[in-house]
Amino acid sequence: MRAAARWLPWLILPLALLIAAAVLLIGWWWAVPVAGLLTGLAGQVSRRHAFSSGFLAALLAWLALLAWRALAWRGLAQLAVVAALARLPTVAGVAFALVPALITALAAGLLAVAAWTLARLAR
């Protein structure tokens, strides 16, 4: 337990990143906040604040995958098409595409805090 507490802080972010990326890859975008939840629990075990890790993990995972898709297979152009179909300026369309990442990251962070706080109650 003591060893876990020692290593877990270093593992929180990459672990959360992996989980977030994995669920995004299979299309479960709604499960990304789970990464935050687990981050919170891990944070409590390791007695480290977990909010920033949960938030960052979700955000980074989403943005990294978004960047990959935008650069591959004409993804940026596809964003422009979506913006055109929705009658949005292209720049607004691109910004629009970032909104889910931010909201999901926020949800992940909040869940991390919730898990961290509630787990502390349970100790």
Binding site: L24, I26, L65, A70, Q78, V82, A86, P100, I103, T104
Partner: peptide, 26 residues
């Protein structure tokens, strides 16, 4: 927040599935 992304909001489609980087519009 998760529900916010899952449902259409006003003039916007459900943003979560639409802009999921892997399975969304891309």
């Amino acid at each position: 927040l998760v529900v916010l992304l899952a449902l259409p909001l006003g003039p916007l489609p459900a943003l979560g599935p639409t802009f999921n980087p892997v399975t969304g519009v891309f």
